[in-house]
């Protein structure tokens, strides 16, 4: 069964929106998420396939409502809990 990310050939999406002179990241936190993910994969906390899987199994509604790097941050957070690096409570600061 396909997951929400599997959009190849799907009908109904609008024309492509382009941003002229787009920077690599639109906010500082996006660069931090990118760097954190590289560091965690580099340290073997999880691997790239596990990361992709964590992005792609986000609840569909959450997936669609999130920006690209928000998805990354959600996936990274999921894996930190699943790998026992920290608890869900620690993650949210609760």
């Amino acid at each position: 069964m396909s997951r929400i990310n599997d959009v190849g050939g799907m009908h109904g999406f609008p024309p492509i929106e382009r941003e002229i002179e787009e920077p690599p990241f639109h906010a500082d936190w996006e660069a931090h998420v990118f760097a954190l993910n590289r560091a965690l994969i580099g340290r073997g906390v999880y691997n790239l396939d596990e990361f992709r899987d964590a992005v792609e199994r986000l609840p569909p509604q959450e997936f669609l409502a999130s920006s690209y790097y928000e998805r990354w941050f959600r996936a990274l957070s999921t894996l930190l809990v699943e790998k026992g690096v920290c608890t869900a409570e620690e993650l949210t600061g609760a």
């Binding site: 906010a27 500082d28 936190w29 931090h32 954190l36 928000e70 957070s77 993650l91």
Partner: peptide, 12 residues
């Protein structure tokens, strides 16, 4: 979200 990312980075 920036605050959440900072929190997780500090935790790590």
């Amino acid at each position: 979200i920036a605050a959440q990312v900072r929190h997780v980075e500090a935790l790590l």
